[in-house]
Nucleic acid binder design. Structure first.
Lengths: 237, 237
DNA sequence: TCAATATATTTTCTCGAGATTTTAATTTAG
DNA sequence: CTAAATTAAAATCTCGAGAAAATATATTGA
């Protein structure tokens, strides 16, 4: 047996297969909403969607309820479901709340993290760096991979925090911000600043410098806000 | 028309009638879980519950999914639903995360709140004080009312915060902590300290003193943690 | 007696059809 | 021609029955 197998899963981590049809439909729907296939504000008619996702009406209904949990879908009394709308104000709110939670979680992580956590951070950073290299070589097909590894890097950073609630809320907010980032990425490719910021966070983490790590992370997150501000308001529908 | 009618609803506020059977069942189930009728860890069999709550199987299923949103119920793959377990560690986490979010929201509220917000805070405090007076007179039947007004007071305090996400997460955490508080209240009745703390928060808010208000609120919330620590561990099952 | 396999029961999960409610279209009155 | 009211269409919500899975029980062999 390899030692690395004892560590929490980072690399080949599919967050365990969906064990129910409802959950499978939930994941596909979530992906389609985040990617903008179902635009913000669109009405989600059960009858039209059940055949496309190849499940029964009640099953699709459950999937929609799960999406309400993530606030990607809003349920309106007796008037069905709708993709959650987006706005600049909302994204500002998401970003600031995310800073609040993620810096706190990172602080706890640095204070509580053991060697294995450091190793995971280094590993996740490495995976992310490789994806960035591929992207710089012009292979746009790896963008999906970069997204995933970026998310993993941020998750691993706070994974040593004992606060399950901070992590839970952070996950929700990350999904939300991912929606906005998809929109901004079309006009603003991943800059080298992003990579150097990730590097700086890694360095601060390994130096166990809470102050530096949190302030860099804050700047890093707020930068995304600036990117979204560049989007013409008509795209936000 | 009375001026007070223009203000957001405080007094006679039922959070708008449930418009669907699923939501009605959801609310009753939520109440029963918080009150401990369904103890932590209990298996929630759909077949047994559908007749008690007088709804169909699919409908009750939806209600359970909604409860997963509030993390009061956990869904386990293909093995049904279960009341979320409780633990002292979990409550510590809940409390600390709540402090983080609620102090931030209160700070924003004080900075952004207008006259109408102040009026709402004063009104909610008054409602709460009256309920406390009734309780001191020995009428235990008003405990339910006090719970509701205490929640309303805390909600109104942060209602002027522009951060919908902070308020959303705070609502979830409040429901969670209410579960634990129900357990502690049996052996520790509402002390006069609680009332004086509410008074102190009100004073600080009216003085627009962010520093004082947030520190008192922090102490206030952490005090509940101490109360729960007094519970024998066997009650936590 | 214990372990492993096989059977039986229970429970969850899924589907399609019917009842209510909402939304859109049409008609009618002013 | 506008606005309210009536009618028609669509969609949501709800229910009960059947299929798949998991748990519990019983049986068999060592």
């Amino acid at each position: 047996m390899n030692d690395i197998a004892a560590l929490p899963d980072i690399a080949g981590s599919q967050p365990d297969e969906p064990k129910t049809l409802a959950e499978a439909a939930y994941r596909r729907l979530r992906r389609d909403i985040i990617e903008g296939i179902h635009p913000p504000g669109e009405k989600l008619r059960v009858e039209h969607l059940k055949d496309h996702y190849a499940v029964g009406a009640g099953t699709l209904r459950e999937a929609l309820q799960l999406l309400v949990t993530d606030a990607l879908v809003v349920a309106q009394g007796q008037r069905g479901f709708r993709v959650a709308p987006i706005s600049l104000d909302d994204f500002e709110d998401i970003t600031r709340t995310r800073v609040l939670l993620e810096t706190e979680a990172l602080k706890q992580s640095i204070e509580c993290g053991e060697d294995a956590w450091e190793a995971n951070v280094v590993a996740a950073f490495h995976m992310l760096s490789r994806a960035e290299t591929k992207l710089e070589e012009g292979n746009e097909g790896n963008r999906e991979e970069w997204e995933l590894r970026n998310q993993t890097f941020h998750e691993v950073l706070i994974s040593a925090s004992p606060s399950r609630w901070c992590r839970h809320f952070q996950n929700i907010l990350y999904l939300q911000s991912e929606r906005y980032r998809r929109l901004s990425l079309f006009r603003q490719p991943i800059s080298r600043d992003v990579h150097s910021e990730h590097q700086a966070i890694l360095d601060a983490v390994l130096a166990r410098d809470v102050e530096a790590a949190t302030s860099i992370l804050t700047e890093h997150i707020l930068r995304t806000l600036e990117a979204v501000r560049q989007i013409p308001s008509d795209v936000l529908s």
